[in-house]
Nucleic acid binder design. Structure first.
Lengths: 343, 343
DNA sequence: AAAAACTGTGGCAATGATGCCATAGTGCCT
DNA sequence: AGGCACTATGGCATCATTGCCACAGTTTTT
């Protein structure tokens, strides 16, 4: 009925001491290959796997790490989780995915409770939790090592993995400029993600470099979701001089731009170019497929796990981004210019 | 930092036995109000909080449940998780999300290991894990209660929540017939989801009822992902008499249909109607928005958690579906009929 | 009035693994 | 030859809590 096998049963079957089984379990040095083989065989035969609870109680490690997140883009989180899972699985660690609400004033206590209960050995934080003061304080106070994925702020005491959001946004904006766009609108990301400000800065830097003034009318608020892409686009298209291109801070919002264009019968990319950010699955699923910045989300996550497991001290690793050209971006048609030439 | 106080310290300070403190902790009956007050005071003074690990080890409940899944649609899983999380949070339970690979011959052992390690009190299975023999056997052998979300097979010993996939597919097909379609193609779901067969049966039932013969050419394999929607559509459109409507077994595949239509310059819905299934976020994000069957995914998940927590015996609860009409479906244009009339 | 049931409390074993200390053989340096 | 470091293994206490059994006093039932 119950699989009753514990470490003692394994020890008996393998003909060794309990302590030796424990050593095999924890990959301690000083176990002969011979003994290890016997123990492994016994464990396999008994279908043994150690109780985390007992391990926590007796020892100092639990073999578990937490992924703490608060992100509303399912595709993005899906990739983050996969990256973490893969590495954890390789490493024999258990991953506890823990959603939180960073706007909840109680978020620190919630994380404290979770750490207390699960005794996780470390944590991976995904933006925007990476910059959530209460959470950071709690983890530091409890002395839990953690790695941050795409943090917005520097933090001398912990490792992080990230990409150059500013440069990526600059690249995309420059690309739009290079193919002829001058009125380029920008939809900001959620304000609680620090990357949002970075991307905006990159956008503005690219414009400024070529002497295009930053027009506040062409910058709209956004929250990384489809609806805010829609809302922003409605605004842009009601302007006296609407943009010829819209650069959204993620793919979800870019999809919103496409939806409005479709509804109004505006041809993309002939009449309006649309660029996204992230290169989630969504970018390939919508029509036309989005020109976007590929963010190596899964690699970011698995690298974060690497850094957490690694012995090394704190490290800040930047992963490369890539501009992905698809069909949602083309040179502007610019009927007004043609007309003025004719007149 | 020093949460060094344990139940013994509390007992000593309160002047009672350790066991009595345990009773207070667990709200046992048979503790006098007087004693309870003393113990509460002592706990407060020592800032005591019990060790979950010890509790799990010594007791029979862990306060944790597992969500075991293997689904490749991020939007779908996102909703499932949310539903589970919400109820678990209300109930003070910890949720451990555990992805598995049902095609892995070792999947049973993996689940066994997870259960033994974490001591979960119960599990929620999401399709297709609901019909994965090895997993079911392991959970039964370990005597872990579980609830299945959208299982394909009946199972007298465990509760389940589901919707009527056959009826839903029938409804959608009938809707397409009612507005004039006769050549309706169908893209199957992943073969390892039992719901796939149900949906196909519903499609065929609706056709048969009105005397339309089921044309094997109009039924294509699919795997619940965008790409298989694309592949199926390429097939359909290369037929001598292509369909006027395509009914895909989920929204991801329906998005694939839309993509092919866009690429070939086929107007949706004027020249081709497209229907999906699930009503995930994706259905509203693509263009045109998908007519689809709303599956109450989040409710399914939270209901599953309800049944797991509930004292009640086994129960099979069906949740209602709903046909959502959006812009991807319209009456067929049928140019060939018009032509023949004219000639 | 005896028996049974309820109330309130205590003692001790058990849970499953690790930490620390001990032991013993081997190879190497001085 | 003595001492030391290294390899390999075993024994036992320990972690913090709950389950089971026992016991005594009080109330209810027969």
């Amino acid at each position: 009925m119950n699989s009753r096998s514990n470490i003692r049963d394994v020890a008996k079957l393998a003909g060794v001491a309990v302590k030796t089984v424990s050593r095999v379990l924890n990959n301690h040095p000083y176990v002969s290959a011979d003994t290890k083989a016997k123990v492994d065989a016994a464990m396999a035969e008994l279908r043994f796997s150690p109780s985390i609870a007992a391990r926590i109680l007796a020892g100092t490690k639990s073999g578990q790490i937490a992924l703490i997140y608060d992100n509303h883009s399912p595709y993005y989180m899906h990739q983050i989780m996969q990256g973490c899972w893969d590495r954890c699985h390789e490493e024999g660690m258990r991953l506890i995915a823990q959603p939180v609400d960073v706007s909840d004033p109680d978020v620190g206590e919630q994380v404290r409770g979770m750490v207390r209960q699960t005794h996780v050995d470390g944590a991976i934080l995904s933006s925007p939790v990476t910059d959530c003061g209460p959470v950071l304080n709690v983890l530091e106070a409890m002395n839990i090592p953690f790695v941050r994925i795409s943090p917005g702020t520097n933090h001398a005491l912990t490792s992080s993995v990230f990409m150059d959001d500013m440069q990526a946004a600059d690249d995309m904006t420059t690309h739009l400029i290079n193919i002829g766009h001058r009125r380029i609108a920008f939809i900001k990301g959620h304000a609680n993600h620090m990357a949002s400000a970075e991307r905006q800065a990159g956008y503005e830097r690219a414009l400024s470099r070529v002497g295009i003034s930053v027009d506040p009318e062409l910058i709209a608020e956004g929250h990384f979701d489809f609806e805010s892409g829609v809302a922003a686009t409605e605004l842009f298209l009601s302007l006296k001089y609407p943009p010829t291109a819209v650069f959204a801070s993620n793919d979800d919002m870019a999809s919103g731009v496409l939806a409005v264009a479709h509804r109004r019968g505006i041809q993309v990319p002939e009449q309006l170019s649309v660029a996204g950010f992230d290169d989630t699955t969504l970018a390939r699923v919508v029509w036309p497929p989005l020109t976007t910045v590929r963010q190596p989300v899964r690699d970011l996550a698995s690298t974060a796990a690497d850094l957490l497991f690694g012995e090394g001290g704190i490290e800040h690793r930047r992963l490369p981004h890539e501009l992905i050209s698809r069909e949602s971006v083309a040179p502007p048609y610019l009927p007004s210019l043609k007309k003025s030439k004719n007149t």
